[in-house]
Design a protein around this nucleic acid. Structure first.
Lengths: 229, 229
DNA sequence: TTTGAATTCAAACACTTGTTTGAATTCTTC
DNA sequence: GAAGAATTCAAACAAGTGTTTGAATTCAAA
């Protein structure tokens, strides 16, 4: 029956997310799912195959729950960025149930397993492409590398609200998501990034060589050395 | 002998960092260290106590290798931020050996164990305090919450170069650290953040009360529609 | 209803895990 | 150098792991 498969997958998500792959036992999951122990080996090849399927199942559920935003041609790029960031935060950082989606995907990101390649293909790459598209609109005359760096800055800001959750609680007693809410957080990240983008664009237009004008910003530059291995 | 302790701790770091706590066996570590299996239970209480000691050992080594920057009173805040970011990146993101330091600490951050509290106290809190101090200089008249959000944005950008490493490689074939180098990356993050800070400061000075967003999905500052009209 | 395949189930298997044991060895102190 | 503590060592232990087995049950088509 296909129902057993589904029950197993649904039960697996939260447990894998909380305990991690190694610390989770197939007995625990089968018991939680109300199925027999051997059902996992029967319906999936083995524990690892089962884990991969569970990750894919979680990612799919996450994408269904928080779909990518859709824009018409007239939507200004700034608004696109805001909705993108909001979607991103909702997908990974937010604690409303099922909260384990983001948790599980973050695990996959930090210590990738066999599921990582598919995860990147189905989940990361579309979002990355969408962000690069928005940045291309926002940053006229920018190089590909500049857009890449900017994308990293934006993604890093969003992801940190999931990755740094435990440390945030230990450090300040609560998460920023709980303190500010997704909306406020998304607005901060968006305006923060837009300001940086706009200044960089202005600099690119006025002069070739950005001298980091404004306040005194002196960087000791120890000549040229090339030591990357 | 104290040497056995040290050999175990040094051997434990890379293995714990690569495989994670559960997937690492004490046999593997004792063999790598060239000690007897029972030495771990003898010198440390059990595997978990051993792991906590290994994390602390790694954090200490990391802090010794890349100490916090020290500034005199005349150092401009912008320069402080750059050196802070550089230090941060060097501590967590860089691949020069021993690269496992950052890896292990990131694991502790993502899935905290008993070592997390001490890790935050000895490692995270000093850096956080230092960053908040710099931001206080950079953001006159800012509220504590604004500084907190800004700190999160900066830390998120730095940490992403460790956290997102595996996905970055899967997505683009190489890490940004490898492609740009720490210096360039630190300069990007610093100028990116400085631009956002300066614009926010300017806004704070011009308008006493920032327009609180209503229910409409709009960016802080109403975006200009692109294109000719 | 009959038949054969698909699925479930309890039990057992083969293996790895962290930990303990008690003797052997080394180190420290007088 | 001898006594006693500290440390190392090979071996064994007990518990838990993923997986397999083969019979029992359910399901679906003739």
């Amino acid at each position: 029956m296909d129902e057993t498969r589904l029950r197993l997958l649904n039960a697996a998500g939260p447990i894998f997310a909380e305990r991690g792959y190694r610390a989770t036992t197939v007995r625990e999951i089968s018991q939680e799912a109300g199925t027999n122990l051997a059902a996992i080996s029967y319906h999936f090849e083995d524990k690892e195959g089962f884990y991969v399927a569970a990750v894919k199942h979680a990612a799919q559920g996450c994408m269904d729950r928080v779909p990518l935003p859709q824009w018409d041609a007239e939507t200004p790029a700034e608004e696109k960025l805001l909705s993108f960031v909001t979607t991103f935060l909702n997908r990974v950082a937010v604690d409303h149930d099922p909260a384990w989606h983001g948790q599980l995907l973050m695990r996959e990101m930090v210590l990738p397993t066999r599921a990582c390649a598919e995860f990147v293909r189905d989940y990361v790459r579309p979002m990355h492409g969408m962000l690069i598209g928005v940045l291309t609109e926002l940053m006229p005359n920018s190089s590909e590398k500049e857009r890449w760096l900017t994308a990293l800055s934006i993604v890093g800001q969003c992801l940190h609200h999931r990755v740094g959750q435990a440390v945030m609680i230990e450090l300040t007693g609560e998460t920023a998501v709980a303190a500010f809410g997704v909306k406020k957080l998304a607005e901060h990240i968006t305006s923060f990034s837009l300001a940086a983008i706009q200044q960089a664009t202005k600099q690119r237009l006025t002069t070739k060589k950005p001298p980091t004008s404004g306040t005194t910003h002196r960087v000791d530059r120890p000549a040229r050395k090339r030591g990357s291995r």
